[in-house]
């Protein structure tokens, strides 16, 4: 093993060398589910943040609260609701998958079938939800 000073010199030399960047890593499906899990998690966090803020407005004045809540009633907000539903559903189902991978000894072996199950469940719930919510938005926007 190198001495401490040699290690320091080695470390600074290492710093000066570039790292491979290149193209996107074509990772396993599990990597993309992890990316989606991160994104939906951050989106849900932002919703909760906004939600806490608008509810806290009640402390400022009931009128301010009402004004803000009224802006949410605009039909276009249905798109945001749909996005929130999509993010929360994926995050919830994939969260169960991740827990099974962590705690169930057969989890790693079945990670792919479990991911497909997550996607199918998500679609089964999202398609009817999207249809019903979007038709509601359309009727409210353009009249029934």
């Amino acid at each position: 093993m190198a001495s401490t000073t040699a290690t320091a010199a080695e470390a600074s030399r290492r710093e000066s060398l570039p790292r491979a960047r290149g193209k996107l890593y074509r990772g396993d499906l599990g990597m993309w589910s992890w990316v989606a899990h991160r994104i939906t998690g951050v989106l849900t966090f932002f919703f909760l943040f906004v939600h806490v803020l608008d509810t806290a407005l009640v402390r400022v004045s009931p009128n301010a609260y009402d004004t803000v809540i009224n802006t949410y009633k605009h039909p276009l907000m249905i798109l945001f609701e749909l996005g929130l539903l999509a993010a929360v559903l994926f995050h919830a189902f994939n969260g169960i998958r991740v827990m099974l991978v962590d705690f169930w000894s057969e989890g790693p072996r079945f990670q792919r079938p479990m991911l497909w199950t997550v996607i199918v469940l998500w679609l089964v719930l999202m398609i009817p939800a999207a249809i019903s919510m979007l038709t509601r938005a359309a009727t409210e926007l353009f009249g029934g």
């Binding site: 396993d28 990597m31 992890w34 991740v98 991978v101 000894s105 989890g107 790693p108 990670q111």
Partner: peptide, 26 residues
């Protein structure tokens, strides 16, 4: 470990790498 399974896919020896990591976690 965030269980992305990239390691299991990459192993040229076919080691179930993520499974091994999970066993250590458990």
């Amino acid at each position: 470990c965030r269980t992305t399974f990239n390691c299991t896919d990459a192993c040229p020896q076919g080691i179930q790498v993520t499974k091994a990591i999970q066993e250590v976690k458990r």
